[in-house]
């Protein structure tokens, strides 16, 4: 464990807690893409298949349970909570995410570390995570100015993967046999997708204006 990875995991945790706070405190999920949340639930379930077979550390197991639990709780809230579900922007959140699922799965069948069920699903979850934010970014652009909690959620989510890239560089430099090409390339793609959002987020923060994304 290095400081970059810890910072990444904490930032990721914050992004999920910010989202849960927004939904719980305001009883509203306006501006949040249910499709992105469902993709993230799939990412965590397919990545942590080793939850019960491999014990790495208490930290690792607890964080896996928190991520799976919180992502499923958010999806449940947005779908079935009688108050929250009314504020879901159903007509704006129309990204055809089956494409993302299909492409990620086909890519995982072709590119993986070992051709085992667990490894193929692990690679699938890595590729899917890289593109899971797309429905949310599209929703932010369609709903124009974002309310700040939705913007913060995306900001922390982007920052977490950027920290992980530093972690991979650090591990590559300090550990001889560390080669995680699937994670590194996918993580770079993921962070690049956030780049334009970061730019507009920074501009709005600098001008102390509401975040306006170009439609």
């Amino acid at each position: 464990m290095n400081i970059f990875r810890l910072a990444g995991d904490m930032t990721h945790l914050i992004s999920v807690l910010v989202l849960l706070l927004k939904i719980y405190a305001t009883k509203s999920c306006s501006g949040i893409s249910l499709k992105t949340q469902e993709l993230y639930a799939i990412v965590f379930v397919t990545r942590y298949l080793d939850l019960f077979t491999d014990f790495i550390s208490l930290y690792n197991t607890v964080m896996k349970l928190v991520f799976i639990g919180s992502s499923l709780a958010i999806v449940w809230c947005m779908r079935y909570h009688r108050v929250v579900r009314r504020s879901y922007d159903r007509e704006l959140d129309t990204f055809r995410y089956w494409i993302l699922l299909g492409v990620s799965f086909i890519l995982a069948l072709v590119l993986h570390e070992k051709f085992t069920l667990q490894e193929v699903f692990w690679a699938f979850s890595i590729y899917l995570e890289a593109v899971a934010i797309l429905p949310q970014l599209v929703l932010l652009q369609r709903s124009g100015n974002v309310d700040n909690l939705a913007g913060q959620y995306v900001f922390f989510l982007g920052a977490y993967r950027a920290f992980y890239i530093l972690n991979w560089i650090y591990r590559y430099l300090t550990e001889q046999r560390f080669t995680r090409w699937i994670s590194c390339v996918s993580g770079l793609v993921q962070t690049a997708l956030y780049a334009d959002f970061f730019y507009y987020y920074f501009i709005s923060w600098k001008n102390n204006a509401k975040l306006q994304l170009p439609a």
Partner: peptide, 10 residues
Amino acid sequence: LSSINGHDEL
């Protein structure tokens, strides 16, 4: 305890 499949990251 390093995990069997080597994925020690979240």
